[in-house]
C-alpha cells in the first residue's frame, strides 16, 4: 500500500513538473557534404562566429554545447574555446578568424599554427552562429503589497525563439563537412492569482541539447 502511495506521489510530481513547464516545439536538421568520423585522442573545438560579423551567440550556449558533447561514455574530447583561442593568438580572434575553409591552408602556413593544432589534436572546429531572442509577448500582470499582505493578479506570456547553426570544419582535410541547425520555439506563461506560477519554457537549453545530440551523431557516424 505504501509502495502504491509512493508511486502515485512520484507520478503526481512528474505530471506537475510537466504541467509547470511551457510549450516547446523544435526542429533539427543536418546537411552533410563530406564524410566524418573521429579517432581516439582527437578533439573538437566549439567556436562562435565573430561578433565583428554581427553574430551574437551567447557564451553560455557555447559552454552548454561543449558540456553536452563531452558528457557520457561516448563523449567527445572537447578543447575549451578560450584555451584554443589563446593558444593560437592572434589567429582566431574575432577580427582574424578564418571565415571560410578556403582560408585554412594559408592559416596553417603561419608560424606555429599547424604545430599548435597538431599538439592539441584538434580534428574539427564547429562554428556556431545564431542566438535566442524574445519574439513575442503579452498579457498583463500587476502586483500590490500593503500592511495586510500582498499578491499578484493577471496573466503574462512570452515566446522565445532559439535559432542556431553549426558549421563543421574538418582540419585534417581542410574542408567543410556540412552543417547542423536547430530551430526551437518556446512559449512561457505566468498566471497569477495571489501567487504567480511561472511555467517556463527552457528554449535555449532545449536548443543546446538538440544541437549537441545531432552534432555528436554527425561527427561520430562515418557515413558520407
Amino acid at each position: 500500500m505504501t509502495r502504491v502511495k509512493r508511486l502515485t506521489g512520484m507520478l503526481g510530481l512528474a505530471l506537475l513538473g510537466m504541467a509547470l513547464s511551457g510549450c516547446i516545439t523544435s526542429r533539427v536538421e543536418d546537411a552533410r557534404i563530406g564524410s566524418t568520423g573521429i579517432e581516439d585522442g582527437e578533439s573538437v573545438v566549439i567556436m562562435a562566429k565573430s561578433y565583428h560579423l554581427g553574430n551574437e551567440t551567447e557564451e553560455k550556449y557555447i559552454s552548454c554545447v561543449e558540456d553536452a558533447l563531452a558528457r557520457g561514455k561516448d563523449g567527445l574530447k572537447i578543447i575549451p574555446h578560450r584555451q584554443f583561442v589563446d593558444s593560437l593568438f592572434p589567429w582566431f580572434e574575432p577580427r582574424t578568424a578564418p571565415a571560410e575553409t578556403k582560408n585554412l591552408p594559408r592559416l596553417m602556413q603561419r608560424p606555429g599554427v599547424a604545430d599548435r593544432i597538431a599538439e592539441q589534436r584538434v580534428r574539427y572546429i564547429i562554428w556556431l552562429d545564431g542566438d535566442t531572442e524574445r519574439v513575442a509577448g503579452g498579457g498583463s500582470l500587476s502586483c500590490a503589497a500593503g500592511p495586510g499582505g500582498g499578491g499578484c493578479f493577471g496573466f503574462a506570456w512570452w515566446q522565445n525563439d532559439a535559432d542556431y547553426n553549426a558549421s563543421v570544419w574538418d582540419l585534417q582535410n581542410m574542408e567543410s563537412d556540412g552543417t547542423v541547425s536547430t530551430d526551437v520555439s518556446g512559449t512561457s506563461f505566468l498566471p497569477a492569482l495571489v501567487i504567480p506560477v511561472p511555467l517556463i519554457a527552457r528554449t535555449q537549453s532545449k536548443a543546446c541539447k538538440a544541437l549537441a545530440t545531432q552534432l555528436h551523431a554527425f561527427i561520430t557516424s562515418e557515413n558520407a
Partner: peptide, 13 residues
C-alpha cells in the same frame, strides 16, 4: 580587454 586584444591582433597582422 577584448578591444585591446583586437588592437593587438591588428598590429601583429
Amino acid at each position: 580587454v577584448l578591444a585591446m586584444r583586437d588592437a593587438a591582433a591588428l598590429m601583429i597582422m
